[in-house]
């Protein structure tokens, strides 16, 4: 029998009490992180946008509204366009090569059984190295007379130059360092992507007649690596946009602005010339590119899942 012999009065306080307790605990636990997130990350990110619309220079007692003046100034500044061009050339040079090389290395490592661990470690080591310290090594390697690069090139009968001081080669010399550090990252991400491909796909492809290496790659590996590739390209591109360390220690943006990139320009304007507002505007351009890349990544992955 249903035990229903109770008064029908239904107290309702408990729900609020329980939920309020849980909410209070949640805010106490999340509070420090949320507060720090706003003061150290989101707040400053908003502030940088706001600052870019003013005329403030570091240390000035007054601050005035400048609208889009900083952006107009940027548009009229030859140095900005050189900087932007350099950044894009650097990204266009580093990204395809490091992604392509990373993919090639990952495929070759997976294609055999011997020395896998050694190759993986060798290619990954640059990712963990201190780029600043390694930049100094590269400086020595690019040394015009005793550097390893020129010695090797000369031995091979290739043209040599003072790589970091020649305006035509400096940006690509820095790009080479960028690639050296990025290949390992794209390699491990591709290796993880390859591991995630189910073996039976290859077996069923073989039964369907696709058993040569090229066919296997074209029919199974490459399509299955699609999402990983989009991810690797985005990650590498965002990291390339952030190039700064090598520029700062090896070329100072020179010779004659040939290696001036967005972040370095921002650093100089903001912290050498103390033009905070203008540097903030440069930061916004930089942020715009990074967000654009993420947006493209989301779009591409979205479309893929529709077809999948």
């Amino acid at each position: 029998m249903v035990d229903a012999a109770f008064p029908s009065a239904r107290p309702r306080p408990s729900r609020r009490a329980g939920a309020a307790l849980e909410a209070a605990a949640a805010w106490t636990l999340a509070g420090p992180a949320v507060a720090l997130m706003w003061t150290m990350l989101l707040g400053p990110a908003l502030a940088v946008v706001g600052l870019s619309l003013t005329d403030w220079e570091f240390g000035m007692p007054t601050i005035g509204w400048a609208g889009l003046d900083n952006y107009f100034e940027m548009a009229g500044d030859r140095v900005f366009w050189v900087t932007l061009r350099n950044t894009l050339v650097y990204v266009a040079f580093v990204v395809p090569l490091s992604v392509f090389l990373g993919l090639g290395v990952a495929l070759l490592i997976e294609a055999g059984a011997t020395l896998r661990g050694f190759y993986r470690a060798a290619f990954f080591l640059p990712v963990t190295s201190t780029l600043l310290a390694m930049a100094l090594v590269f400086q020595f390697a690019f040394h015009p007379s005793v550097g390893a690069v020129n010695r090797t090139f000369a031995w091979l009968g290739l043209p040599t130059t003072d790589w970091l001081r020649n305006p035509d080669t400096a940006l690509f010399a820095l790009g080479a360092i960028g690639i050296w550090q990025a290949v390992g990252l794209s390699m491990v991400l591709f290796l993880a992507g390859l591991k995630a491909i189910p073996r039976d796909l290859y077996e069923s492809a073989a039964i369907d007649g696709a058993d040569g290496p090229w066919e296997r790659f074209r029919r199974v590996t490459w399509p299955m690596l699609g999402p990983a590739t989009v991810f690797v390209v985005t990650i590498t591109a965002i990291r390339s946009f952030q190039v700064f360390d090598t520029v700062a220690v090896l070329t100072d943006g020179g010779p004659n602005k040939a290696t001036s990139v967005l972040l370095y320009q921002m650093y100089q304007e903001g912290f050498s010339f103390l033009r905070s507002a203008y540097a903030a505007a440069l930061t916004c351009v930089f942020l715009g590119f990074v967000l654009l890349l993420t947006w493209l990544q989301v779009k591409l992955l979205d479309r893929r899942t529709h077809y999948a």
């Binding site: 239904r10 107290p11 408990s14 729900r15």
Partner: peptide, 22 residues
């Protein structure tokens, strides 16, 4: 057990109403 909170009604264990107890 007190792991969910009811919208209405009460639970008594022994002599105690436990609705507001953890």
């Amino acid at each position: 057990a007190g792991l969910e909170t009811q919208d209405a009604g009460t639970v008594r264990i022994g002599a105690r109403a436990v609705d507001d107890l953890a």
